[in-house]
Design a binder for these strands. Structure first.
Lengths: 210, 210
DNA sequence: CCAAAAGTGTTCGAAGTACACCCATGC
DNA sequence: GCATGGGTGTACTTCGAACACTTTTGG
């Protein structure tokens, strides 16, 4: 599970410090096993609820990892999921030792156990592809947010700076986002207009083929 | 395994007629089980060699299917692979009963067993996305081919007609394809210039799982 | 008044889309 | 000579990229 949330304005990744061999002391992705009568999506949702105490999340599978030697303990086939959660809905559970779990910026992850570096890279690539198909920001930001915050999310996903004017024009033209009453006074500077995701995005969408 | 090849100028799909319950008599995708010490890619390649007698193929995973009720006999988790093979390299093996396997046009598949309709749809969507990232045609067509043949492949994948002039300009501008000596005299009409795929361009290639 | 972030338009090139006619061949 | 598919160019639109200054606030 590649569990992402915005922390301190950065897109960050939850990692678990391994308490036992192999890779003892290394950081690793959270995860777990699928139960006997459980779909993969349900397993991912259950794990997520256990680890992070969240239920309303965007969960999407992006790859399968089945090399027979990827886990020295034996054969494990993993399905990678990206989970986008709102920081304000996040409650790390008691089950997860406080000092055994930590957030890292997605762009600067620490050394990871197993084939997890590759899994993180794949997750990011998947997210990049999904960025202009799905309201990624809606899953990560609170109900109302400034366009600057949304832009930071997009920049973290694509990995480079985006021109402010181009970005604003684009998201507003898409109609995914709309201004709402209220401003966000954040500090020693001009307060920002607040926005929210507009109702269903089916409006401006045209169907192609069948 | 969604095994595709060009048959009679159409992009076609290999299906197996089920000999036993459940879904006896229905058409289904070919496939098999992963061995104990085998990667998923290796399993797919092995199955493909057994079913179709081909080894040089483009094989790519595109999805995982793990609903606990997808197979009434018990829990089966499947990884979907698209395989693109050249018709001239294809040899259906003795292992595959001649009348138990058949090709169907990808656009008009018959009723399928299990959740296979969805898998086929996903494979097609995946292929559509991959179309301008990867030399899909190179895997399906013989060494040399006419641009019209390549265009038919693309049209089958995207599901609608493409303007001839725009298509030719685009593939030639990309430099993926180059004219070679020779023409293809095909019938009661002007013979077509032959082309082949040019040496790899520095295209960023991305895989979905391993 | 200064620092810090918010907000705002125009121009350019690239890429895609629409569209109609002549060409070479076998019969 | 005619039917069949092969081959070619131009205009328009759309999208993304580059680019700099003014505004509002807190300190």
């Amino acid at each position: 599970m590649v569990l992402l949330a915005i922390r301190d304005d950065r897109l960050s990744l939850l990692l678990i410090r391994r308490a036992s061999e192999p890779f003892r002391g290394c950081w690793a992705l959270p995860g777990g096993f699928v139960l006997e009568r459980e779909s993969l999506d349900a397993a991912a949702a259950r794990e997520l609820a256990e680890e992070a105490g969240v239920t309303r999340v965007h969960l999407e599978p992006f790859g399968v990892y089945g090399d027979p030697d990827r886990d020295p303990r034996g054969r494990v086939i993993s399905v990678g999921y990206v989970a986008l959660v709102r920081a304000d809905e996040l409650v790390l559970q008691a089950a997860t030792d406080a000092d055994a779990a930590a957030w890292f910026p997605l762009d600067e992850p620490p050394a990871l156990a197993f084939d997890h570096p590759r899994i993180v890279a794949d997750a990011r690539a998947h997210l990049r592809d999904a960025l202009d198909r799905e309201p990624v920001g809606a899953e990560l930001l609170p109900e109302s947010f400034s366009l600057a915050a949304l832009q930071r999310v997009h920049e973290a996903v694509v990995g480079h700076a985006i021109d402010k004017r181009n970005f604003r024009r684009k998201v507003l033209a898409e109609g995914l986002v709309e201004a709402i009453e209220g401003e966000l006074a954040g500090g020693a500077h001009r307060p920002a207009q607040l926005y929210r995701y507009a109702g269903r995005r089916g409006e401006a969408k045209r169907e192609v083929g069948r």
